[in-house]
């Protein structure tokens, strides 16, 4: 793929990924065929900041975990009142990283 397109992707979507993943993503995209550009452009990623806001507001109901697609853990949080409040607080710090990992998983399915 052309470097300009790859850099455009990195610039617009960089905030959705862990910083240590950006270089591998860039290298992988550069190797890839141009025909995949359309699919990659249409991928929708979850914003880590939004998931943090949801975690702060509805964390003890597990809504943050439902939002990023961890349905099972979300149900676990919901049934236990956010893990007796402990898990809910722990997730305030973990949820942004978890969101970025989920985005990476989504991108990996395509590239």
């Amino acid at each position: 793929m052309e470097p300009q397109k790859v850099d455009l992707f990195i610039m617009t979507n960089g905030k959705y990924f862990e910083s240590n993943h950006l270089i591998p993503i860039r290298d992988r995209l550069l190797e890839m065929d141009d025909s995949k550009w359309g699919i990659i452009q249409t991928l929708q990623f979850k914003d880590p900041t939004i998931s943090l806001i949801i975690s702060l507001l509805g964390g003890s109901l597990g809504i943050d975990r439902f939002f990023i697609g961890d349905t099972g853990l979300g149900i676990g949080k919901l049934l236990t009142c956010g893990g007796l409040g402990v898990w809910a607080v722990v997730d305030w710090f973990l949820i942004m990283g978890a969101t970025r990992e989920k985005n990476m998983e989504k991108l990996r399915q395509v590239i």
Binding site: S60, G82, V86
Partner: peptide, 18 residues
């Protein structure tokens, strides 16, 4: 009382009472 919702709002959460 460990429930954050109950402590903040005074309303029990869906799993209060478990």
């Amino acid at each position: 009382n460990t429930c954050i919702i109950k402590q903040v709002t005074g309303i029990p959460c869906p799993s209060c009472g478990a």
